[in-house]
Design a protein around this nucleic acid. Structure first.
Lengths: 215, 215
DNA sequence: CAGCATATTCAACATTTGTTGAATAATCAA
DNA sequence: TTGATTATTCAACAAATGTTGAATATGCTG
């Protein structure tokens, strides 16, 4: 485990930046808003992280590796438990999703903000190509490989398109826009990622099978 | 020298604003960038549309009614063709999606930008509650009603959660981030909405059935 | 033509923005 | 204690931003 100073102000800067970037996007947040929210002078963000863009990248990087590891471990665990034919579809998808729910349940509200930020980046035609590839491509490739084994008759294009459907459903869930709350008259709460995943896993698994296996 | 739609400069302002807002978001675009792209002075945007926020709203409103009508008509057409038990699931979803593809195929690249802008708004925790509800809630309620008829055993929460999965998959497709292009090594092109919908319809239909009908 | 409304540009404003260099405070080893 | 390194604030800069009022152009109607 990495050990870091308990609460230097640089961490508070990252926390506040994380929250504000997730809500308003990169250009919708000023360094002074971040500094003010962190109870810190404007120049301090620059001292610790350099330019605004570097701060944005630092926020993104801070939790990326840990998130990646958790998801990869979940996939490896499912694979270790399965036979040589690989884990079933539902377990692959669950390994893709549940680490995100676990992170949010950990009590650290920073993870909630971080995942909303990832949703913002992943849905942005400007940011997604620049930021998502560097750290997530390898992980996604691993999941795609596992999906191909679970769906041996699936054509590559179909699997990738289905993966995009899964990614989109996940992205909107992480964004937590509150829209489903209103549409459903309160029956659904967009902050309840567990409830969302409870449906997302069978939903997308059935979708994969229908498109890639003809079921 | 003359391929010009007889468009006054106010339309060009909307066109450029549409494109830039879709790519960079509300705060990522300056009025001077819009004016410059439209070959127009900065003050003209203010003269025609008022404040920046009003311009943003004007861009959103310009095509909203037409889009809504096309989707509602598609649903009504499916209902008219079906018996009293209502149209099957796939046709409801197709009515929800295909008008968007038709709009993009119309040759007007403005529709492509507009739908990417809707994707940006729909995925934003800040904008979605303010802008999506006003114009889309009634339409969504109509589709939900049709879905409930097609899935009579489905519980309300399940149907709403499934709808969110559909909405998320659609949103990411409309954002056209280009990410699937790279992941798939060129086998999928995110600009090809037709190809995306070809999979999205059976994918989400199977998902609805699995979650809401126990199939 | 004249007159008038609309459309468009020009010039400028008060703020806000990201950024930086110097000054001050805190931390810590010797 | 020193002294040096790190952390933080202060003050200010040039550039960019949204916005506005006045000036000019354009088009239309009589």
């Amino acid at each position: 485990m990495s050990k870091k100073p308990p609460s230097p102000k640089s961490e508070r800067i990252l926390d506040v930046a994380e929250e504000l970037f997730a809500l308003h996007g990169y250009d919708g947040v000023t360094l002074r808003q971040i500094a003010s929210g962190a109870g810190v002078d404007v120049a301090l963000a620059n001292y610790h992280f350099g330019k605004k863009l570097d701060l944005f990248q630092a926020v993104f990087d801070r939790r990326a590796a840990e998130l990646n590891n958790a998801r990869l471990e979940a996939l490896r665990a499912a694979q270790a438990q399965a036979g040589p034919e690989g884990p079933p579809l539902e377990e692959i998808i669950a390994a893709f999703l549940t680490p995100l729910d676990d992170a949010q349940r950990g009590g650290d509200s920073g993870w909630t903000n971080y995942l909303a930020l990832v949703a913002y980046i992943n849905n942005s035609p400007y940011w997604a190509p620049k930021m998502m590839s560097s750290l997530f491509d390898k992980l996604v490739a691993e999941f795609i490989k596992a999906l191909k084994i679970a769906l041996p008759q699936g054509r590559d294009e179909d699997i990738y398109w289905c993966y995009q459907n899964l990614s989109g459903a996940l992205t909107l869930a992480l964004a937590k826009t509150g829209r489903i709350d209103k549409l459903s008259g309160g029956k659904c709460v967009s902050a309840d990622i567990g409830a969302a995943f409870e449906r997302m896993i069978p939903f997308t698994a059935a979708g994969f099978r229908r498109v890639c296996a003809g079921d």
